[in-house]
């Protein structure tokens, strides 16, 4: 079985890899590019732990083939902080204790960042529906929603 050669950009860095046609983008990120921030919680697009953006669009990387990354811009949780400066969402998640085990956190941060880029002033309901595809089993979502709303406020005030 021949492998596919793919050239893509991940968190701003140009990257090449070979993958089996059946490998998902999540498999490639984790097993070939060593970017294990995206997690596989279900493999069926139901939990959002593998969330990344492709050309700015939020997707589950488990529902994208590695081969489809050709020529795309991929962004993962590893690219959210700028150097040693955390993104406001990252800071607020720590500050609000918006994570317990932390397995869903990378996916939720990627998804929430995507929301705030599209809608800087979301209502609580909008945040809840936007994040409905990101399962968290620990927190009951309360502190996650608060952290996202607080980060949005801070980002609006800063801009």
């Amino acid at each position: 079985m021949s492998k596919i050669h793919v050239t893509t950009t991940v968190n701003g860095d140009e990257t090449e890899f070979l993958c089996d046609p059946r490998e998902t983008l999540l498999d490639v990120l984790r097993d070939r590019l060593n970017l294990t921030g995206a997690k596989e919680g279900c493999g069926t697009g139901d939990c959002g732990a593998c969330s990344v953006t492709i050309d700015g669009r939020l997707v589950c990387s488990c529902l994208v083939l590695g081969a489809e990354a050709e020529g795309k811009e991929i962004a993962t949780v590893e690219g959210i902080a700028e150097g040693d400066t955390l993104h406001p969402l990252q800071r607020k998640f720590i500050e609000h204790a918006a994570l317990q085990c932390g397995i869903c956190t990378p996916g939720i941060l990627v998804a929430a960042k995507s929301l705030l880029e599209k809608n800087p002033n979301p209502t609580e309901t909008e945040v809840r529906y936007w994040l409905a595809g990101n399962l968290c089993r620990c927190t009951g979502y309360d502190k996650i929603i608060r952290a996202v709303m607080d980060a949005a406020t801070e980002m609006r005030e800063a801009s």
Partner: peptide
Amino acid sequence: TRPDRPDGLDKVTGRAKFGADAV
């Protein structure tokens, strides 16, 4: 009191190593 958790940074940056993250 409510200080930041010690593993917070690792967990918001994706570098925390969970079960499937080891090689």
